[in-house]
């Protein structure tokens, strides 16, 4: 684990760059993380990010794309449009959460 800094926040990250401390994330950090991977956050992105954050808080693990569709109400196709190519990993990264561990 190492520490990085963005917008004056000190952030703990894992070896791949994902945040490891739930409470070190805020909206500004999310926008900065998204910008790093070429994504400008829109209300549609935020709907998913809010769901991921709340879901992680209650379940202790990052939701998969399947769960974002079934429980979060955002269709898979839209997830791929908003977070191209690798939606599960990109959503988790911007939401300041670990990569999802489930297979589906």
């Amino acid at each position: 684990m190492s520490v990085t800094e963005i917008l004056g926040h000190r952030l703990h990250i894992d070896e791949d760059g994902y945040l490891t401390e739930y409470d070190e994330w805020d909206d500004d950090v999310a926008a900065a993380l998204a910008a790093q991977i070429g994504i400008t956050l829109t209300p549609e992105h935020w709907k998913i990010l809010r769901f991921l954050r709340d879901d992680f808080q209650s379940r202790g693990e990052t939701a998969t794309t399947r769960r974002v569709q079934v429980t979060g109400g955002v269709p898979i196709k839209e997830q791929f449009a908003l977070f191209p190519k690798k939606p599960a990993k990109k959503m988790a990264y911007i939401a300041g959460l670990p990569k999802p561990h489930s297979c589906v």
């Binding site: 990085t4 800094e5 791949d16 900065a32 790093q36 690798k86 990264y93």
Partner: peptide, 16 residues
């Protein structure tokens, strides 16, 4: 800079 520091730790999503 903070940006440079973060850029070094962005996950590789293979977009490039």
């Amino acid at each position: 800079t903070s940006t440079a520091c973060l850029r070094a730790t962005v996950p590789n999503f293979g977009d490039d």
